[in-house]
Simulated assay, not measured.
Amino acid sequence: MIKMCSTVLCIVIILSFFLPTAAMAIDVPSQSAILIEEKTGRILYNKNSETEMAMASTTKIMTAILALEYGNLDDVVVVGEEAANVEGSSIYIEKGDKITLEDLVYGLMLRSGNDAAYAIATHISGSLKNFVELMNEKAQIIGATNTNFTNPHGLYEKEHYTTAKDLALITQYAFRNEDFKKIMSAKKTDIKINNQVHTLYNKNKLLTGYDGGNGVKTGYTIDAGKCLVFSAEREGMQMIGVILRASDIWAESRILLDYGFEQYTTKNVMKKGEYITSIYVEDGINDQFKIISDENIDIPIKQGENIERVLNVNNIMAAPIYNKQRIGSVDFLIDGEIIYSKDLYSPQKVYEKDYLKFLRENLRDYFNILSQEIPIEALDIKWLDAS
Score class of each variant (00 low, 15 high):
2 I>Y: 13
3 K>P: 06
5 C>P: 00
7 T>Y: 07
12 V>Y: 08
17 F>A: 11
17 F>D: 08
17 F>G: 12
18 F>V: 09
20 P>G: 03
21 T>A: 03
22 A>M: 07
23 A>S: 10
26 I>E: 02
31 Q>Y: 10
38 E>P: 09
39 K>W: 08
44 L>S: 05
45 Y>I: 04
47 K>D: 00
48 N>I: 05
54 A>Y: 15
58 T>V: 09
61 I>F: 10
61 I>K: 04
61 I>P: 00
64 A>V: 04
67 A>E: 09
68 L>C: 09
70 Y>A: 06
76 V>R: 00
77 V>N: 04
83 A>R: 02
84 A>E: 14
88 G>N: 01
90 S>E: 10
91 I>W: 13
93 I>E: 10
97 D>C: 11
97 D>E: 02
104 L>H: 06
110 L>K: 09
111 R>E: 14
114 N>A: 00
116 A>Y: 05
117 A>E: 09
119 A>W: 02
128 L>G: 01
132 V>H: 03
132 V>Y: 13
140 Q>P: 00
141 I>E: 13
141 I>K: 07
149 F>P: 12
150 T>C: 14
152 P>D: 02
152 P>Q: 04
153 H>E: 09
158 K>D: 12
170 I>P: 00
172 Q>Y: 04
172 Q>R: 05
180 F>K: 03
180 F>A: 00
184 M>T: 15
184 M>S: 15
185 S>G: 02
186 A>N: 08
187 K>M: 04
189 T>E: 12
190 D>N: 14
198 H>M: 04
203 K>F: 07
204 N>W: 04
208 T>F: 06
211 D>Y: 01
211 D>I: 08
213 G>E: 11
213 G>L: 09
215 G>D: 08
217 K>H: 01
222 I>W: 02
222 I>Y: 11
225 G>A: 02
229 V>D: 03
230 F>N: 00
231 S>F: 09
243 I>C: 06
259 Y>M: 00
263 Q>Y: 03
268 N>C: 12
270 M>A: 02
273 G>D: 08
277 T>W: 07
278 S>Y: 14
279 I>Y: 02
280 Y>P: 00
283 D>K: 08
290 K>W: 13
290 K>L: 10
292 I>A: 01
295 E>C: 10
296 N>P: 07
297 I>Y: 05
300 P>A: 08
303 Q>M: 14
304 G>A: 06
306 N>H: 07
307 I>Y: 01
307 I>G: 01
309 R>W: 07
318 A>I: 14
319 A>K: 12
323 N>L: 05
323 N>A: 04
328 G>A: 09
330 V>E: 06
331 D>L: 04
332 F>Y: 15
338 I>E: 10
339 I>S: 13
340 Y>R: 10
341 S>I: 01
351 Y>R: 13
353 K>S: 02
357 K>P: 00
357 K>D: 07
358 F>N: 13
358 F>C: 06
359 L>M: 06
362 N>K: 12
363 L>W: 13
367 F>P: 01
373 E>C: 11
374 I>C: 04
375 P>Q: 01
378 A>S: 14
379 L>R: 15
379 L>K: 15
381 I>Q: 08
384 L>E: 13
385 D>F: 12
386 A>E: 15
